[in-house]
Design a protein around this nucleic acid. Structure first.
Lengths: 253, 253
DNA sequence: GCATTGTATATTGGATCCAATTTTTCTATG
DNA sequence: CATAGAAAAATTGGATCCAATATACAATGC
């Protein structure tokens, strides 16, 4: 414990709405002034900030499975009280990223091999369907963006970035399906397994293969072949899952 | 606001572990004493109690979409402070049952017609697969239990009970799939749409049809026909969804 | 040396208080 | 009567304190 970069905040944790003002406030008089208004109703609370930082640290493996999360310690790192930390921890627990026991605090959750297997299977089912629904709606701009992520994945050498780029590649395509509820479930599943996925990519030299599979999926999308894109997505996920299972069986004893 | 039955708790909200003790503590001496130990680590916190009561009230429609949830009011009803209420509300928000805005409190979430449509579609995809995976593992005892819920659904005249019995019927069968992650997603989806499902059953006289469909699903399970059970489950859910869509389009203007 | 008991310390759960923000009410003005 | 502004009240977000529980350490007995 804990993640290396302490998120030390100032006393006021809500982001200042000044930035839009500072850049756009000129001396032109009110009637020609243009600025991007910031909706203050969506300003981040202390709990939001702590939640997001912890979530990121967990899914990127910066804090490991089994690590304890001490409320007071985290509160001090973020220069806030325990109350927002408790809310952040409660939210993390709802997402399955930590487990808590009454009076015994929070621990970063691990996943058993069976759980990982199931989540990959689940993803294959859901994401294949989302891909199928997305293909008819894909436009040039979206495909170009996905192409960018596909190339970036191939070029990236920092393992910490693989999960994020992989996610961006897939979700860029999936968004065309216009299925927010599905997508929320996909994001949630990815949060659960990202750290394991990175281990698989790293230790089984899985990046070149994943890159080729991304290429094939993207090609099917460019051809407008929804069934093929769905099948390739499904196989891509199931194969990654199998590879990870094999790796974990060897290294978990 | 609010639900009719106030959950007024005593000052101490943790359940007493005494009940097992009281019933089993005799004067036989310690070495022959038998009692069912209660794992106090799992004792419900105040937040747990408030969360469960609010969740139940929302999914059963006792508090309606758009209703405000006032922290202090709820805290008083449960005879506790606002802190556990805030945690309960945060948890409900993670599950999509309420929405909150900074400084403006919590409101029971509604679902748009598009969202409902998507969730039924999602359920059809997931539950068909779970049903398919479950069928090979179904034993006589499980089928008998499901038969019991199937019959109870047909007999039940209280609309408040339909959602619960419907859920019990389906999940009894699904559990044989041994897919806890899928099942968690099914439960979550059902929480989101149960109140709408009850409206559909009530106002479109959907109970007899649902009953027949349950019978057909159960018969396929008894025959061990996984593909048929999956298809019937999928159709059952999609048809219910369509019926509800039709109803809502007429009544939401 | 090991097991048990008692005490001190650490940590979590909830209560209460204060600060920040929103909503409602009241008053003044045209 | 309608509108604007000020003040009061309501509500939420977070800080601090207290109670409850768990963990660590020291003392004691076998």
């Amino acid at each position: 414990m804990l993640f290396s970069k302490g998120g030390r905040n100032s006393r006021s944790v809500a982001p200042s709405p000044d930035s839009a003002y500072d850049q756009n406030l000129g001396f032109q008089g009110l009637d020609v002034m243009k600025f991007a208004a910031v909706d203050v109703r969506q300003a981040a609370s202390a709990a939001d900030i702590v939640y997001e930082a912890l979530r990121k640290a967990i899914i990127e493996g910066e804090i490991a499975e089994g690590d304890s999360l001490r409320q007071e310690e985290i509160a001090q790192m973020f220069n806030t009280s325990r109350i927002p930390v408790r809310e952040a921890l409660s939210r993390l627990e709802q997402h399955g990223l930590i487990t808590t026991q009454r009076y015994k605090g929070a621990v970063v959750a691990g996943l058993s091999i069976e759980e990982i297997d199931e989540i990959f299977e689940f993803r294959a089912l859901i994401e294949a369907e989302v891909m199928r629904l997305a293909v008819p709606n894909l436009d040039r701009a979206t495909l170009d963006r996905a192409r960018g992520y596909c190339d970036a994945f191939d070029r990236e050498t920092d393992p910490h970035r693989w999960g994020e780029i992989n996610r961006q590649f897939h979700t860029t395509l999936y968004e065309a399906a216009r299925r927010p509820y599905y997508l929320q479930n996909v994001q949630s599943s990815l949060d659960r397994i990202d750290r394991y996925l990175r281990a698989q990519l790293t230790f089984t030299n899985g990046v070149p293969r994943a890159g080729r599979e991304h290429e094939a999926i993207l090609a099917a999308c460019e051809k407008g072949d929804a069934d093929l894109a769905a099948r390739l997505t499904r196989d891509h996920i199931l194969d990654a899952g199998r590879s990870l299972m094999t790796f974990l069986r060897k290294h978990r004893g």
